[in-house]
Amino acid sequence: MNVFRLTGDLSHLAAIIILLLKIWKSRSCAGISGKSQILFAVVFTTRYLDLLTSFISLYNTSMKLIYIGCAYATVYLIYMKFRATYDGNHDSFRVEFLVVPVGGLAVLINHNFSLMEILWTFSIYLESVAILPQLFMISKTGEAETITTHYLFCLGLYRALYLLNWIWRYYFEGFLDMIAILAGLVQTILYCDFFYLYVTKVLKGKKLSLPA
C-alpha cells in the first residue's frame, strides 16, 4: 500500500458516496446514466468473486463489500425507488457495443485461461469503458449538474492515481500488470476531456454546459 493507491481508493469511495448522496438527497437521478451504474455493478461483481475464495486483508474485504453494496444500492435507487426521475430517453448508449467486444477481449487476452481469471480480466476491461454511457448522456443533453461533475472528477482521479501507484510499484516492488495498466490508461484518457472542462469551468464556479 502506498499513498497513491490509498488516495486512489479513497477518491473512488468518495465518488461512489457523492453519487449515492446526490440521488438520495435530491430524491432524483436526473442526469445520471443508469446504464453506466449497471456496468459498474457488473464490474464489481465479476472482479470481487475472490471474496468467496481468498482473504487478503480486512481493508481489502471491507472496501470490496462497500463498493459492491453501494453499486447495487445506486442501481436500486435509479431503477426502482426513483425510477420516475430516471432520464431513460437520454440514456441511449448501446451497452452491447461495450460488453460484447470487452467479453471477447477478456477471453483472448488474459493472464490465465480460467473462469475466475477471465471474469477478473473482463471486469478490468469493462471498467475502463463503463463511464461512456454517462459521458454520452452529458454530451447529448449538453450539460451536467455540478454535483455530477464532482462525482465524475473523483471517479476519473481514482484511476489516474492508480497509474501513479503502478509506476511506484514497478520501481519499488518490480510489480507489473500490463492488463491493469493498459486498461487503466485507457480509462484515464477517457476522462481527459472532462478533466479539462472541470478545471476550466466547474472550478471557476460555472455550470458545466457544452457548446451547442
Partner: peptide, 10 residues
C-alpha cells in the same frame, strides 16, 4: 508460476 498481478488492489 507466480501471479503477474496480485488481487490486493481494488
Amino acid at each position: 508460476g507466480s501471479p503477474v498481478h496480485s488481487k490486493d488492489e481494488l
